[in-house]
Design a protein around this nucleic acid. Structure first.
Lengths: 184, 184
DNA sequence: AAGGTAGGAGAACGAACGTTCTCAGGTCAA
DNA sequence: TTGACCTGAGAACGTTCGTTCTCCTACCTT
């Protein structure tokens, strides 16, 4: 197995474990066992656990935003594209094993002690917010709408995570629709 | 020092430390040192760390909701009372040492491993949501508004916590006002 | 074939931490 | 006074975990 494959396998296992149980509850040994990548290799690829955590957040960020954008792109109307964000959230919330937003959870766990993790969380949230900004601009809506939609989405993620139910996505969609309607 | 005083002192220190650095980064020994309550006494009052965490969340919940309700009660108009929730959030976000919502953070840290903590978080969020429900009902607004306002507030808490800025309270207030206006 | 290098398995190390124990002193009842 | 009990200070214990080290095997080069 070459380095690139080992890296992917390690990240696959790390993501599954970190997301499912929280970062601090997962030891490097758990990652070794789940991935089949030896400790030696693990520490070659990621010289410290923190770097594995950062890599996990970065890879997940790219995939998360890619999937969201792909889903949204299937809608033609600018306002429909905005509402599609919330439809995608509902699909995500309903996934088997959904346990809330990985970045919000990581921030609660490590934000106070790891600057690198806190930075990754902020970067992810900023990127999501900027993305909403482009959707809002494409719809010819005032820029402030992006912030409002962002807060609804974040609230839905937190609430779905804590309650374990996907309903908040529908509520957020409803609220978003009301906000859009008010701008017409 | 009697038991009740020791309990308060322990909880004061625990709250300061847990909230400021996260629960897992704080040892029982740190609580002992910061509170001046001996380990023996600490374990008499709270037979395990988890119970100290639960007690911290419960006491903070009572105070948090009490302060919010007191602030809101100063407003006479039902719709003003709803907006006052977001004004209070802004004050909270701007406080020295604000580090996000204690319950969201605790959930990210312990939700996956401690059922007792997860329960306290759900109870707190449910109580807050119910409270918004009473404000919405008093204003003669449709019940679904409570869910929308709740999501805005949760989104603001998360975002203020991650960014360290109080602005999300203002954005959420703006969005709430737009939602209220749409119902007139 | 010989020797060198990389990798895997897992033991080992050192620190942190939750929890319990020891010991010395103080208090109060009889 | 005596003795039972409580308390505080902090040592001690057992576990977990991040990280490093040891040892052995397999493969590549010459």
């Amino acid at each position: 197995m070459d380095s690139a494959a080992a890296r992917e396998q390690a990240l696959d296992a790390a993501e599954r474990l970190f997301y499912g149980r929280g970062v601090k509850s997962v030891g490097m040994d758990d990652v070794r066992t789940a991935s089949g990548v030896s400790l030696k290799r693990l520490y070659q690829l990621f010289p410290a656990k923190e770097q594995l955590v950062v890599a996990y957040l970065e890879r997940r960020d790219a995939r998360w935003r890619g999937q969201l954008a792909a889903h949204v792109a299937r809608q033609g109307e600018p306002r429909e594209r905005i509402l599609a964000v919330f439809d995608w959230l509902r699909e995500w919330f309903a996934e088997e094993g959904f346990r809330g937003c990985a970045w919000i959870n990581a921030y609660g766990e490590l934000g106070a002690t790891s600057a690198a993790v806190a930075d990754r969380v902020r970067a992810h949230k900023q990127a999501f917010r900027d993305y909403l900004g482009t959707l809002v601009a494409d719809a010819g809506l005032p820029a402030r709408m992006a912030g409002h939609l962002f807060l609804l989405a974040e609230g839905a993620m937190v609430t779905a995570g804590v309650t374990g139910r996907p309903d908040p996505a529908g509520e957020a969609r409803e609220a978003a629709r009301a906000l859009l309607a008010a701008e017409r």
